[in-house]
Amino acid sequence: MSNNKLTVIDREGSTHDLQWEPDQTLMEALRDNDLPVLASCGGTASCATCHVFLEKEVFDTLAERSEDELELLVDAEGYQECGSRLSCQLAFSQDLNGVTVTLAPEE
């Protein structure tokens, strides 16, 4: 499988183009490319520090958020009902090639 391309808008509004490798979750792709994604809990859907926004068209194609994920997101800074995801809960998929991801504000 080849890498996905990924565009990231950071908290200052700057844009970064990254490679998203097939063995990475979205959180890992962000963190391992040195974006300021804290991922305190290491990807166990328990800290919400990997919160990102997706475009609605992309968001709508994804499977439902788990109860654990939603529980954290609804309390997270800037929560968007049709856009917020924990990036650690998004596995690599070729359908996500070329998407744009915006880092959510930090608490």
Binding site: S40, C41, G42, T44, S46, C47, A48, T49
Partner: peptide, 13 residues
Amino acid sequence: GFGHGVHSCLGAP
């Protein structure tokens, strides 16, 4: 064992 949530163990890896 390595905690859970925002205070999860930083040194776990």
